[in-house]
Amino acid sequence: MADGYVLYGAPGWGSTVVEAALTLMGQAYQRVDLKEGVFAHEDPRLVKLNPLAQVPALVLPSGELMTESAAILLWLTEQHPEAGLAPAPGDPARAQFLRWMAYIPAQIYSMYWVRDIPSRLAEGPAAEEVIKARTAGRIADCWRMMDGQVSPQTYLLGDRLGVLDLYVTVVSRWTPRRRRFYAVAPKMAEVVRRVDADPRLAGLWAERFPFEDGWEG
């Protein structure tokens, strides 16, 4: 039995959203970062833990392993309901919460398995550039569709920040990056800017996903 959570990941990667959730929940966790400058599949510590060689990978206090970012976030909200980071079962917002929590990894996050190493599906520089351009277009189109079907208030599902807001905030910083996201998803743009500026997350962003010059693209 471990003392707390152990999170495998790297700054700016998909593990960042789990770190944001744990921060807002007030939960202590240990980080295990991948080797700097290499992809996850090249780090034997992660491969041994998760044969898919993907992050985030979260070891629970019980020693059990969890993978898949959406599953981790959903599980954490169930374990720490006092943080109020998800609509509870029976809440009118619950259906849309589950819908969009599944939509992000299925339609958007999955594109990065291709974009990060386009040679997985394309042969040669020219074909790889086509893959990069078309996946960027697909990502932007998916953000546009989501933006057209949500009705944000202060946050995506109401007046309280939740893990869905954290998920969109982190993933929207990846390519095609924020300027294009702002253009295709103007309603959600206001929400992610608000999450960017949340003082409870300032230290985490500075350490794990800093707002460096040109970060918006």
Rank of each mutant, 00 (worst) to 15 (best):
M1E: 05
D3C: 09
G12C: 06
G12P: 07
W13G: 08
E19I: 10
A21W: 01
Q30C: 05
K35M: 10
F39G: 13
F39K: 06
A40Y: 07
H41V: 05
E42W: 07
E42Q: 13
E42S: 13
P44Y: 03
R45Q: 14
R45F: 02
P51L: 10
V55R: 02
P56K: 01
V59I: 15
P61D: 04
L73M: 14
L74N: 13
T77R: 07
H80A: 11
H80K: 05
E82G: 04
P87H: 08
G90Q: 08
A95S: 05
Q96K: 13
M101S: 11
Y103W: 12
A106H: 03
W113F: 11
V114M: 14
D116Q: 08
D116I: 14
I117A: 08
P118K: 02
P118Q: 03
R120L: 09
L121Q: 11
L121M: 07
G124V: 12
V130E: 12
A136D: 15
A136H: 07
A136P: 05
A140L: 06
R144L: 04
Q149K: 13
V150Y: 08
T154D: 12
T154N: 11
Y155K: 09
L166G: 01
V168E: 10
P176E: 01
Y182M: 11
P186Y: 07
K187P: 00
V195Y: 02
P199L: 12
L201F: 04
R208K: 10
W215P: 01
